[in-house]
Design a protein around this nucleic acid. Sequence first.
DNA 1: GCCTGTGAAGCTATTCACAGCT
DNA 2: AGCTGTGAATAGCTTCACAGGC
Lengths: 208, 208
Amino acid sequence: MAAISDKTIGRLSLYRRLLAVFIADDRDTVCSRELAELARGTPAQVRRDLMIVGCPGRPSQGYDVRQLIERIGTVLDAPDGENVALVGIGNLGRAVLTYLAGRRPNLTVAAAFDIDPQKINHAFRGCPCWSVEQIPRVVRERGIRVGIIAVPAANAQAIAEALVAAGVRGLLNFAPVRLHVPDNVFTVDMDISMSLETAAYFARFGNA
Amino acid sequence: MAAISDKTIGRLSLYRRLLAVFIADDRDTVCSRELAELARGTPAQVRRDLMIVGCPGRPSQGYDVRQLIERIGTVLDAPDGENVALVGIGNLGRAVLTYLAGRRPNLTVAAAFDIDPQKINHAFRGCPCWSVEQIPRVVRERGIRVGIIAVPAANAQAIAEALVAAGVRGLLNFAPVRLHVPDNVFTVDMDISMSLETAAYFARFGNA
DNA sequence: GCCTGTGAAGCTATTCACAGCT
DNA sequence: AGCTGTGAATAGCTTCACAGGC
């Protein structure tokens, strides 16, 4: 399959989640207009995204809900599931754990790491916690390819390097720094204070 | 001033934060190449962003660090500071409070709201907590224009409407739904599971 | 009539490349 | 030489608009 942009991948993830509403309503089909409404996008955008991943729709009926969910799954999900490492179990790390627990069975936070001796060797929401020194061993043993960085800014770069050295190729970074990683590692930055400052700016000056 | 894009605003916020490093190093000037390195962008991008907000640089010397911080501040910061409301003090809400506490003196989380009677009338990190029913009164009284939504998906839309009705014009939304708000309200979505799925996808297929 | 699929157009954001300053 | 400031070029993304099918 041709390369798919990160924006499209993100929207597919969103579409799949929104489709649960239609399943709950026992709807069999959905049209691009309805999905666009929920996703706050345009119908043309939805159709193009679905076209890119080869989701077939039927003129005048729309898309088959179950087929859509399944097809998006074959694109987004690793066939045998994907284990994720979480580094840092402060408030933010615990929030992420809670939030992800039992949500996407395909993505499992299979290992957590921290430097606090109080937390090491305990489990949080069923997820075992090791010392960060164990990152090389545990990440490699479990074939983990995705990491979540929820540590203070000062430690983020070192953690990123440890994860990448152990085989991680995708990072979700909550630390307010930009990580220096090789080109073959994909990073998504979730910069809370940047986003809040952006929201505050446009609250004053408007979007239009 | 002409309209500035959200991407540029976000990067300005990042640049300002990164400039602290140069202040700490007692550096007086910085060039676009150095700032780009830290922000993981290109020098041309940095120069254009700074040009857009009228930050002057000097050929062969670069930009004056202190002047840059001040100028970015006049763009991003409300002259008399900005109060922010936080709705939902679960793990995520507390993480955001901790994270923002004392970071940007200009943006203060001045009011928190929750539905848990255990939390109401307590303070978290110096931030008083009310019942969500008090949103209309408190938000209006304090002139709050920015809101952070850290509640479960099912409640997010109702909270957004309450905030907007009370005068909020900028939202930072952590709930995994897309909010339906008027055009004059700016929303930044921080969708954790979407971002994680995106990171997981590119961990498998690569960015290139 | 309603909806998909998609080439083409349009728009926005980023990068190039170079004139001009120190 | 080194760096800014910026018009022009490019790349990437979104929307239009309409042919085609039910």
